[in-house]
Amino acid sequence: MAKKYTMIVNLARCIGCQACTVACKFQNNVPEGQFRTKTPANGLKGTYPNVSVFFIKEACQMCQNAPCVSVCPTNASHYNEDGVVLVDVDKCVGCMYCLTACPYDARFINKETGAADKCTFCYELKVSKGEKPACVSTCVGSALMFGDLNDPLSQVSQFLAKHKGEVRKPEFGTHPRVQYIYEGVVR
């Protein structure tokens, strides 16, 4: 049965340590100066001494109605059998149409391949082998969870049963598979 892979980012737990950022670079040997993911501060809010801040992991949101896929002239951008959005480097001509279409700035043209690149949920190298994505398994704050929503016993299903997951920029109707938990953070 097809999987419904989902990543959960529990913002209250994220400490902005960037272990995910670096793990991703090596797992997917992303060229110097380019990133599939980053976890910057969302900007300090409030005035001294009543301030708050949280860090937010940015990467491909794995839209199920993905603008990057619909605009791709060569079908290089596609959904795989488990609903993961991937780029077929072979078909990609590097036209950057998908870059302009992605509302989450998740994509870039890989310096070395010249093709569009982005988070793949580590599908090829990890997930398809039954392992967790590199960023998830190295998450120092235990802020990241990954699993199959079609499996009611998976950590993600269990967690989302108890906590409210939200997607970024819902107004675009992209239906992301990456969900953010805002409980315990000041927006």
Binding site: P73, C92, V93, C95, G114, A116
Partner: peptide, 12 residues
């Protein structure tokens, strides 16, 4: 010229 992979333009 603007393509990331100019030589594969024919794939379009």
């Amino acid at each position: 010229l603007d393509l990331g992979r100019p030589l594969s333009f024919w794939k379009l």
